[in-house]
Amino acid sequence: MNRTKTALAATLALTLATGAAQARDLAFSVFVPAASPTVQHVYQPWVDWFNEQTAGDDVQITLYAGGTLGRNPLAQAQMVADGVADLALTVPSYTPGVYPDFDVFELPGFAQNTAEGSQAALELYREGALTGYEDYYVVAMYSSGAYMLHTREPVATLADVEGLRFRVAGQIQTAVIEALGGVAQSMGAGEMAEAIDRGLIDGAMTDASVARTFRVADVAQNHYDSNLGVLVFTILMNRDVYDSLPESVHEVLAQSGQFIVDRQIEVYGPAIESNLEDWRNSDTHTLVIPTDDERAEIARRVQPVIDMVAANATPGLIDAYVAKLEDIRSR
C-alpha cells in the first residue's frame, strides 16, 4: 500500500511539474510610453482579453511598455527574431525599403481616418495583397489617424509651408514634405516637442493624438488638417513561438487582429476628434481646413511620390487599396 501511495505521489508530482513546464509567459515589447492612450486603451485591454481566453492553456502575455525590453523602434522586429521579445510593436516605414508595400498607407489623400486605415490594412494583409513579414506571425495591423501639419507659426495656406522645417519619420513622409515645399528633419517622436520649442524645427507632421501625447500641440499650436496619409503599425510574433503554441491559442491569435482594430477605432478615432474640437474652439490654437483647390494642389504635388511608391510596391496594390477604401466606406 505504501508503495502504491508513493507511486501515485510521484506520478502526481511529475504531472504537476510537466504542467508547470508547459506554462508560457510571452513577452510583448512596446516602445511607446506606458501612459499613452494606445497602451492603456488598446494594448493592455487586448492582453487582458487574450490572457482570459488562453487561461486554460497556461499561456499568457506580459506587456513591457516604454521600451523596457528595448527603446529603439527600428530594432523591434529584430528583437522578436532574436528571441529578446516574443511579440513586439513595429512600424514598417521606420525601416525604409524593407517593406515597400506598406508605403501606400502613408500617401496623402487616401485613408481619411484611423477607421479606414486600420480596417484596410488588416484586410489587405489577410487577403494576401501585402507582402512582407513572411518570417513572422502577424498578430495585428492597424493605423494612426490622418497626418496633419502642426507648426509654431500659423499655416493658413499651402504656400506658407514653403521652407518650413518639419519632423518626419521615414522616406515617404520625407518625400511628401519636400513635395509640399517643406524641409524634412528626421528625429524620434520623443524629440519633437523640445526641437520645436528650441526653434530647431518649425513643426511636425503627425496625427492629432500623437501631437497631444508627445506634447507637440503645447509648442506648435497651429494645425493644418491636410490628410497627409496614415502610419501603419504591426504587432509581430516570433514564428517559432507561434508554431509551438497549441491550436486553441492560434484561434485566439487569429481573432486578435480584429479585436485590436476595433479597439483602435473605438478609442483612437474619438480621441482625435476631441483634440480637433478643442483646437477648433480654442483661443490659442488655430485649425485650418484646406480648400478643395488646395487639396487638389497637394494631390498634384505628391503625384510623383505616389508614382514612386506604386513602382516599388506589389503591382496593382494602390488600385486594390483604393477599392478596399471604397468598400469600407460603403458598409
Rank of each mutant, 00 (worst) to 15 (best):
S244P: 02
T206G: 04
V219M: 08
V241F: 01
V216L: 11
N222S: 13
N222W: 05
L236P: 00
E251P: 01
M237N: 03
Q255A: 12
V219P: 01
D243L: 12
R215K: 14
A208N: 11
F233W: 13
V249L: 09
A254N: 12
F233H: 14
Q221V: 08
D218T: 07
H223V: 11
L228E: 09
I235A: 02
S248D: 15
A217T: 10
G203W: 05
G203L: 04
D218Q: 14
A217E: 11
R212F: 10
Q221C: 05
R239A: 10
V210A: 13
T206I: 13
A254H: 07
R239Q: 12
S226I: 01
S256H: 00
A204M: 06
V210E: 15
S256L: 08
Q258M: 08
T213H: 07
E247H: 09
Q255V: 00
S244F: 02
R215H: 14
R239P: 01
E251G: 00
S248C: 03
S209V: 15
Q255M: 08
H223P: 03
S226L: 04
V252D: 06
D243Y: 01
T213Y: 11
S244N: 08
V232K: 02
A220Q: 09
L231C: 06
N227E: 14
M205Q: 13
T206V: 13
D240P: 00
N227A: 12
V232H: 01
Y224I: 10
M205N: 11
P246R: 06
D207N: 15
S256P: 10
E251A: 14
D225I: 05
Q221Y: 03
G203Y: 07
S226G: 10
V252L: 09
Y224V: 09
R239K: 14
D218H: 07
V210T: 13
N238W: 02
V230F: 07
L245H: 04
N238T: 02
D225P: 00
Q255Y: 01
E251R: 04
L236A: 02
M205V: 11
H250L: 04
N238M: 02
A211L: 10
G229Q: 10
V232R: 00
S244Y: 04
I235E: 02
L236W: 03
Q255F: 01
D207C: 08
R215G: 02
V249Y: 02
L253A: 05
A211S: 15
A204E: 12
S209A: 13
N238D: 15
L245S: 07
L228S: 03
T213V: 15
E251W: 02
G257I: 01
F214A: 12
N222F: 03
V219W: 08
M237W: 03
H250N: 09
A220E: 09
V241M: 09
E247D: 14
S226P: 03
H250I: 04
S226A: 15
G229V: 06
T234Q: 12
D218F: 03
V241E: 05
V230D: 10
T206N: 12
F214C: 00
D218S: 10
H223M: 12
Q255T: 04
L228Y: 05
V219R: 11
A211G: 15
D218Y: 10
Y242H: 15
S256F: 02
